[in-house]
């Protein structure tokens, strides 16, 4: 029988090996039912980034309220699994396209579009990097 997993207070990532700043990393929070929740962070010059749960849950609540049928309450259905992935050029382009549709309607991290464009400018230089996630 599954139990509800406590949502982590803080989630951090580390990109290795040492990387140029601005690499975009997608955090995916897996749910027991319905869709996962996603969030994008940008690594600093040390390859690190972190995000607090209050910010994550605020974004997830907003997403859930905007798209009622697609999500359940992350506090109740979080599976405990978080995965991280360095965004490819194609995924960055998709994120930018989505930003154009969703901006002004839901909240984004500060300077989100600028950071996405900067990450896109890194191109294929990030191909061999790896990312680990800590919660």
């Amino acid at each position: 029988m599954s139990t509800t997993q406590t949502f982590p207070k803080c989630v951090s990532i580390r990109v290795t090996p040492s990387s140029p700043p601005g690499i975009a990393v997608r955090l995916q929070f897996h749910m027991k039912r319905k869709n996962c929740f996603n969030y994008i962070v940008f690594a600093d010059s040390n390859g690190a980034a972190e995000v607090k749960s209050d910010k994550l849950l605020a974004v997830f609540d907003e997403e859930r309220s905007a798209f009622l049928m697609d999500y359940e309450n992350p506090r109740e259905v979080f599976s405990g699994k978080i995965t991280a992935k360095i965004l490819s050029v194609k995924e960055l382009e998709s994120a930018l396209a989505a930003y154009e549709v969703f901006r002004g309607k839901v909240s984004f991290p500060s300077d989100y579009a600028e950071h996405l464009k900067a990450a896109l400018g890194l191109g294929d230089r990030i191909g061999s990097h790896k990312v680990e996630v800590y919660a």
Binding site: R26, N35, M69, D70, E91, A98, Y99
Partner: peptide, 19 residues
């Protein structure tokens, strides 16, 4: 605005659309 029910989330990640 778009004429579609979006099939990605705000970060551009594909999702299941429930209907």
């Amino acid at each position: 605005e778009t004429g579609y029910i979006p099939n990605v989330d705000q970060f551009g990640v594909p999702k299941d659309v429930y209907v």
